[in-house]
Amino acid sequence: MKNKKLVLSIVTIFILLLLGFLRWDNFDSSGDINYKYDRWASQKWVEFYPPLAASPNSMEFPLMYMDEIHQSDINKYLEKQALTGELVNKWIERTKLTDGYIGLLLLNILVVIYSSIKLFILRDKK
């Protein structure tokens, strides 16, 4: 089979897309706070939508050493975790996993494009 690389890359793309869709598990929301779990990093995250904010953007941060947080405790929690450096370490871990995933996905897409072009050029020459 001449196009093993193409078939393998397409299968790998589908597996990567499936893994991407299964990365996050949303938990219950309580008011302006939404909890989600990053399966790749085994880390619980909080998505907070400030009620009186000028923009609809949310804040995201890892939730460490507790299962839930109240809106009044967010600033104190973030200050404490930022001083220890753990907050940054969790963000770096999440970013590395995301960047690696995107890199693998793009690499597979490029292999599919290259293999397809090579297959069609060889077919046209015959």
Rank of each mutant, 00 (worst) to 15 (best):
D99P: 02
L63I: 04
Y37V: 00
V111L: 15
D38N: 14
Y114R: 05
K90V: 04
T95C: 03
V7W: 05
K5Q: 11
S58A: 15
L63M: 06
A82C: 05
L17M: 12
K76T: 08
M64C: 10
P56S: 13
M1D: 11
S115W: 04
K36E: 05
I33S: 00
E79C: 09
S30I: 08
N89L: 14
I10D: 03
N108F: 09
Y65L: 07
K76R: 12
L6P: 00
A82V: 03
I74C: 08
S9Q: 02
K4E: 09
W91F: 15
W45V: 02
K2N: 11
K36Q: 11
K90T: 07
V46M: 09
Y37K: 07
W24Q: 08
N3Y: 09
S55D: 12
G31D: 13
I102R: 13
D32P: 02
K80Q: 14
K36A: 05
P51E: 14
R23M: 04
V11P: 00
D32N: 15
L97W: 02
R123T: 12
L104K: 03
G85L: 03
S30F: 12
E79L: 15
L17V: 13
P56M: 07
K4V: 08
K80W: 08
G31V: 01
R39E: 09
M59C: 04
W45H: 07
W91S: 06
S30T: 15
Q43H: 03
P56F: 09
S9V: 01
V88C: 07
Y49W: 06
M1C: 07
P50T: 07
I15G: 02
E68T: 15
I69W: 01
I74Y: 01
S116L: 14
K96A: 11
N57Q: 12
N89Y: 06
G103V: 05
R94E: 05
F120E: 03
L19E: 07
H70I: 08
I33G: 00
F61Y: 07
Y35P: 01
L107Y: 04
L78Q: 06
T98Y: 09
K80G: 05
R123V: 10
F14M: 12
K125N: 09
N26C: 02
N75L: 07
I117R: 13
I121T: 13
R39D: 05
I69Y: 04
L107V: 14
A82Q: 12
D32E: 14
F14D: 02
N89D: 15
G31A: 11
V46W: 00
D25V: 15
L105P: 02
K2H: 07
V46D: 00
N89G: 04
N75S: 09
L105E: 02
D28R: 07
D124P: 01
Q81K: 11
K126P: 02
L8V: 13
Y101R: 08
Y65F: 10
I109Q: 11
I69F: 07
F48Q: 01
I92W: 09
Y37T: 08
I13M: 12
Q81L: 09
